[in-house]
């Protein structure tokens, strides 16, 4: 899928809310290094997911701007995977610094495991299976609506 700006944002929100939420549901109980009541851990897990979504809208604006320098106005598959590094680092430092105080401190191992698995899951779905139920999605720049 070659995205438009609206398509990028919609795809991100949609996939985080579906694939991301399912993965979070499954993975939170087994995240390394986390302790405390499972309910609290779920709250934290979903808040992290929400933070990826909210910050992601800003990130998509940056990606869209950078994409303009590409003749084909495309976004190679590898970019979609590697952008997990800057996005993960930014969120990690924001959480560490306490800038997002609604989210309780998350152990590094738990954060990175959760973040990476969600990211790769969303990326994999966006690169193929998404087209199975949504046949118009790839022709509409990734717009779901």
């Amino acid at each position: 899928m070659v995205p438009t700006l609206a398509g990028r944002i919609q795809t991100r929100l949609f996939l985080l809310a579906t694939v991301g939420a399912i993965i979070t549901l499954l993975i939170v109980p087994v995240l390394p290094g986390s302790s405390g009541a499972l309910g609290d851990r779920y709250v934290t897990g979903f808040l992290v997911l929400a933070a990826v979504a909210v910050l992601g809208v800003a990130w998509e604006l940056v990606y869209h701007f950078l994409m303009q320098f590409r003749w084909e106005k495309d976004w190679p598959t590898l970019f979609g995977l590697l952008t997990l590094v800057p996005e993960g680092l930014l969120l990690y430092f924001l959480l560490r610094s306490g800038a997002v105080d609604v989210i309780d401190p998350v152990p590094s191992a738990a954060f990175w495991t959760h973040f990476t698995v969600v990211w790769v899951g969303v990326w994999l779905v966006a690169n193929g299976p998404m087209r199975v139920p949504f046949i118009r999605w790839r022709f509409r720049g990734g717009r779901v609506l």
């Binding site: 899928m1 070659v2 995205p3 438009t4 398509g7 994409m67 003749w71 084909e72 106005k73 495309d74 790839r138 022709f139 509409r140 720049g141 990734g142």
Partner: peptide, 16 residues
Amino acid sequence: QGFNYPKSVWGGQLKA
């Protein structure tokens, strides 16, 4: 150019 049109004609910015 990779293909006979810039890639975004099939669904991205140029198509829109």
